[in-house]
């Protein structure tokens, strides 16, 4: 055998490679190539854009352990928000580091999560503490106005609404404004009084025609039976029917009030569902950031 230092090295290298291949095959390990920082970010972005948010968060978190990254840090919060884990998103955005370039956006998203959690009173208090030089002041002002559409409070002047909602969907939002002003309502007192006057009338007023007629017939029959029995001298039976009449008479007044309340709630819920759908479509008039362009 010829002494050749190069050949020795070759053999050593070969052995080394063979060993590497064998060892990697034995202890199943993921290939390093797919787990470099750059590739992890790429894969994480892919997950984020296919709405696989929780996996994206995991991927981003592993990336952040290797190297700080402002965008990823922001997108983690966004992922929680889009998974509708508003509680986590709210805390996350609230404690977002000021030195991150996405700090204003995180602040806006913090406001938005409070809004999405329907914590409208808290939202308005937070809004009172905000200042006009905040980058997204118009956005949070709009959200602030929108809180009124979800609550039973006097609405702000429509000219203010018009002023701040200078957006393509302006007319639609004004339509919702007018709809809120004219939301059909039935008075609970009127429903109760009407049924006290004529059994069943309150139910009819609250939109329940069939129930109203049934209540009227019920009260009529029971009342007649009470009267008829008293007249015929059947005192005990008379009292039983009188008692039943009283119960159904009271029950109908109670039920009329409840029916009016349900009527109001139904209109309110339908209105809010419609409004929420619209706002979701418009992304609550907040920026989309276009991370998945």
């Amino acid at each position: 055998m010829r002494k050749n230092p190069n050949g020795k090295i070759t053999i050593v290298y070969l052995l080394f490679f063979v060993f590497q291949i064998i060892s990697s095959a034995q202890t199943i390990k993921p290939p390093d190539k797919f787990f470099t920082l750059l590739n992890r970010i790429k894969f994480g972005n892919h997950l984020f854009c296919t709405k696989d948010y929780l996996r994206a968060v995991e991927e981003y978190r592993s990336c952040l352990k290797l190297k700080p990254n402002d965008t990823l840090q922001f997108k983690i919060g966004l992922a929680y928000e889009r998974m509708k884990k508003f509680g986590i998103a709210k805390m996350y955005f609230n404690s977002f580091p000021q030195e991150n370039i996405f700090f204003p956006e995180a602040r806006l998203e913090f406001y938005k999560t409070v809004f999405l959690m329907k914590q409208f009173r808290e939202f308005r208090n937070l809004y009172l503490g905000s200042t006009g030089n905040f980058k997204y002041f118009p956005e949070i002002t709009r959200l602030n106005y929108l809180t009124y559409l979800f609550e039973d409070l006097p609405l702000p002047d429509s000219s203010n609404f018009r002023l701040w909602f200078n957006v393509p969907a302006k007319e639609e939002i004004m339509k919702f404004y007018r709809k809120k002003v004219n939301l059909p309502r039935k008075s609970l007192t009127a429903a109760g009084l009407l049924s006290a006057l004529i059994p069943g009338l309150g139910k009819i007023y609250a939109g329940e025609l069939g129930d109203g007629i049934t209540a009227f017939i019920f009260n009529g029959i029971l009342g007649f039976l009470a009267y008829d029995n008293f007249r015929a001298g059947h005192k005990t039976r008379g009292w039983i029917f009188a008692g039943l009449t009283a119960i159904f008479y009271g029950g109908n007044i109670y039920g009329s009030v409840a029916a009016a309340q349900i009527y109001n709630k139904r209109n309110k819920v339908n209105y809010e569902q419609e409004l929420s759908k619209f706002l979701e479509r418009e992304n609550y008039f907040t920026p989309d950031y276009n991370f998945c362009k």
Binding site: G210, D211, I213, T214, I247, G251, N252, G255
Partner: peptide, 23 residues
């Protein structure tokens, strides 16, 4: 008392032959 009133109302609604199923 309230329970009895609620029951009387429910009984009336139950007896309504023309229940609106959309409700």
């Amino acid at each position: 008392v309230q329970g009895v009133l609620m029951f009387a109302d429910r009984f009336t609604r139950d007896s309504n032959f023309f229940k609106s199923e959309s409700r």
